[in-house]
Write a protein that binds this DNA or RNA. Structure first.
Lengths: 143, 143
DNA sequence: TTTACTGCAAAGTGTTTGCAGGTAC
DNA sequence: GTACCTGCAAACACTTTGCAGTAAA
């Protein structure tokens, strides 16, 4: 289902469909952990021993172009990638650095209010929250 | 006034007060352009011919520690710095890459709503908007 | 006089690019 | 068969670090 979608979208835009591209998208589509390029690479390495980081980066660039991936910049050294492309806020744990979605929140009223108060023509946005995840909060208490 | 504040804060925390540190903070306090390290460096170069980028980075780290500067990550290759440390949304023009403050917006209701809907303990946030600034919109029309 | 800072150069990190061999179509 | 892709290695851009000389306190 996912793969069909990717295959069609790649072909439509004149990109070739390769095992590497499908594999990279599959990793992103199957996780909610917002992996970095390095994490995607490490996950694929066992199954695709010749996979290279360069291919991961090149593929992500294409996936972004055809709208299948969004790029996150949660204030770390590296970018993270998300196959859930509908815009939603993200939260990063400052202890363990995990990044989670905040999908239960309706941001539209806030976005409209901002768009209405600036002379910019707003075309997109990213909301990043920072804090301590439930697991790390528990760990703190057991001390 | 600004300098007094910086001087006191540096001394209180055991940091030495140097011309370089005051100059770097002055640049940040005097602008709303959210400069990168490179921009700060270029602005100071004529007045402080021996100034180095390393000093800019080291100083910003200290200014962040004592709460005089916040670090922005608007999705570019480099970080940008802001001496207005009260939390406010930012907007970047995708044409000319200028970054502006969005200070007319009250984000508190939105932040509270998010904090209430997640199991994370929220400690901070950054809101980035993307769009086209008024100048670049005008430029588009004159074509 | 002590302690910390500056600024150079070198190292480090994540990402991008060039290109020769290989694969999709 | 053509055009595009992969994956290696090298290049790149930004940031950090090590260290010898220097300045703040």
């Amino acid at each position: 289902m996912y793969e069909q979608n990717v295959t069609a979208l790649l072909r439509d835009r004149g990109f070739k469909v390769t095992p590497q591209r499908l594999a990279i998208y599959s990793v992103l589509a199957a996780t909610r952990s917002h992996p970095s390029a390095e994490m995607i690479f490490s996950e694929l390495q066992p199954h695709y021993p010749t996979m290279s980081l360069a291919t991961v980066y090149k593929t992500i660039e294409i996936l972004k172009e055809i709208g299948l991936v969004q790029i996150l910049n949660v204030g770390e050294d590296s970018f993270r990638y998300d196959a859930r492309t509908h815009n939603h806020p993200h939260v990063r744990c400052m202890k363990c650095n995990r990044v989670d979605d905040l999908e239960d929140v309706d941001s539209n009223e806030f976005i409209d209010r901002v768009a209405g108060s600036t002379a910019y023509r707003i075309t997109g946005q990213q909301f990043y929250f920072y804090g301590i995840c439930p697991e790390c909060q528990s760990a703190e208490k057991n001390h």
